[in-house]
Nucleic acid binder design. Sequence first.
DNA 1: CGCCCTCTTTTGTCTATACAATAAAAAATA
DNA 2: TATTTTTTATTGTATAGACAAAAGAGGGCG
Lengths: 242, 242
Amino acid sequence: MKPGQPQGLGQQIRSDIERHIASGEWPPGQRIPFEHELMAQYACSRMTVNKVLSLLVEKGLIERRRRAGSFVRKPHPNIESVALDIPHIPIDIAVRGHVYGYQLIRRRVRKPRKSMAHELELAPGGSLIAIQCLHLADGKPFALEDRVINPVAVPDALEQDFTQEVPGSWLLQTIPWTRAEHRIKAVNLDRTESALLKVPPGTASLVIARRTWLGKQPITFVRQMFLGDSYDLVAHFRPSAS
Amino acid sequence: MKPGQPQGLGQQIRSDIERHIASGEWPPGQRIPFEHELMAQYACSRMTVNKVLSLLVEKGLIERRRRAGSFVRKPHPNIESVALDIPHIPIDIAVRGHVYGYQLIRRRVRKPRKSMAHELELAPGGSLIAIQCLHLADGKPFALEDRVINPVAVPDALEQDFTQEVPGSWLLQTIPWTRAEHRIKAVNLDRTESALLKVPPGTASLVIARRTWLGKQPITFVRQMFLGDSYDLVAHFRPSAS
DNA sequence: CGCCCTCTTTTGTCTATACAATAAAAAATA
DNA sequence: TATTTTTTATTGTATAGACAAAAGAGGGCG
């Protein structure tokens, strides 16, 4: 339970300011009260106000200029940074009220294909684990997944046959990660892919390709193909920091 | 020029901690030094350390528990929040080294279609401005855009014919916004769309639909169709704040 | 053994003060 | 007027201290 009214005075100041900005009452470019004005208004010390304002700078909500004051930040003109929630497939399917199913298509240990830079990067020992599997919702194909795993980073994966364990969930429980990169695009499914997903060839598919690292060590590369018309991603604006 | 070595002691502490986490040296779950240990290590006061750690909590990098200490946060198990950069099309095309071109297909003022909830929401005065246009890279179609604008929120848009002005850029210069929601999906282009983009019907397209508000007032709704195989979005992991 | 109470450590928040850095504004100067 | 110098308001960062709140640790007691 997250209380609507927070505990401290600083939190109070912060949520007041955020509310003024979010409501449009203080539009972008607007100067917000000086520190000493907020001190007086809330009867607190300058450090309290300053800590709040520094945090809002970090969040990208405001900008501050010495001698001039603090200003509501304008959305960045050429790039918007938005927060995109990428759910895990089993959980996402459950949340939508369907029954999740998993089906392994193929698992093997093989050499990286030289034409694929990320596969070479992922196979420091000269080989990698390649998995193809299907995620089902109510027994019907929902997403097709191609994954390669670095066996040096995740030696336990060599013991796993992944006939029951879902690779994504298993990996999350097995090994942490610190960095990930996602690429999102649309493709027409080829004959093989469309057959597995039980749709006509050429159907549009939303593809999420993700690379994951622990420190500098690559962990896994995964490519998930969703049926584009039954799946979409939602992103909310979040002002970008610096 | 952003200096690699920041200015203050707090910034020093912060970047040290972030580096330890990013490198995997302090893995998720690891306890990081107590405040008093950092005080001793950096020979500073507790407030300095505390401000840094509070900020890292806000950024979602660490968690703190009284009496127990501060811990590197695990990536959230069921939802990853990633930062997605959505560039503006003219700038994006220029960055890729192509010549940007713009072409208005249709502009008219019309009533909202009752079946579309967002159009009704966008037309408080009973009508809206509907624009269809094309973005070109080196003279070739790059993206097809369908946009509706709230004429109550943006009265100047009634005077603009948008034969030269790119609606997205013009709106950004004309009116600020405080909130946006994006939906991303893949579709097969229909006959009309594919003809405008000069590709075969059925080609997969990455669709970004964006709704924008100023405070509680809706500003514009836009649907941009990109050729899926020549365009992709990149997102970087960013730990989500609470 | 399980339960309750107290002690202790660590974080959470705040105060009051200090000085440095910066950039706008005002004043002085050419 | 145009340019340079000085002033000053505001933010940036830091210190030292204080008390509160939470939760693990340990002890006493049934």
